[in-house]
Write a protein that binds this DNA or RNA. Sequence first.
DNA 1: TTACAACTTGATAGTAACTATCAGTCAAGT
DNA 2: ACTTGACTGATAGTTACTATCAAGTTGTAA
Lengths: 137, 137
Amino acid sequence: MYTIKEVAERMEVSEHTLRFWAKNGFFPYIKRNENNIRQFTEEDLEWVQIVKCLRSIGTENKAIKKYIDLCTIGDSTIAERFEIIKDTKKKALERMDELKKQLELLDWKENYYNNLINNKGIDRCNPLNNDCQKVTT
Amino acid sequence: MYTIKEVAERMEVSEHTLRFWAKNGFFPYIKRNENNIRQFTEEDLEWVQIVKCLRSIGTENKAIKKYIDLCTIGDSTIAERFEIIKDTKKKALERMDELKKQLELLDWKENYYNNLINNKGIDRCNPLNNDCQKVTT
DNA sequence: TTACAACTTGATAGTAACTATCAGTCAAGT
DNA sequence: ACTTGACTGATAGTTACTATCAAGTTGTAA
């Protein structure tokens, strides 16, 4: 059993956000003790994990709530949940590709600045003072 | 020369966002024609590209403005710009790692649902109707 | 040549998802 | 008794869009 503070630390999500998510109904099975304090179980942590995962891939809170609701309904929603996971995976893979391209641009720029620093002012590819950026069409 | 609409299409950024970015000073060298219409050059597209890259890695608009301003100041800011690019690259690599872990979780879930669908109801790892999620500590 | 669609512009308002602040309650530990 | 930590709810602020709107310009068709 974990307090909200422990969960925040362990899962790297702020307490605020955890309460916000809880208010949104993202943690359907959470229990409270006799003093109304939330007690997160290991299983609750897994809900935090999937919510965190979906959010960071860009799934909107409304859609996350939908997925959670489907989970609590039961077996009849398995096919629908399967689709959601597949869609999310697709989005994640797309983001991955995008990130790779962005890393190429950043590598190029890093190299560009590095050269500039090492042979001060020589080999500028642009006479103006703005960046000489990589054209990727 | 490209109109804002063409740029939006080609760079996959909405016209709205382009105007918003322009208002924020993200495109310092942009020209307008006699009717006050923005005319994006190839070079302007490269500014769009770097802004898009920085944003999608999570750089805040304030920090992007700072970077743009450094670029327009000139050579004296090269070292500082170099640091910004290196930091951004680091963030991108971290995001990459995170994405990989998230993809593992999604793969696991996809497989889990897939099994459930193929041998209907058998091999459930949890007697309750909530998800049986992967524990990753 | 007038009408209308298809652009553009800036201004303003609305939205999503936090994020922060505050006031007030409750219970446990020192 | 007092501090600490967690809770609640309300409210306001922030960031980065995103949508709506009125107004101006240009090109084509009747």
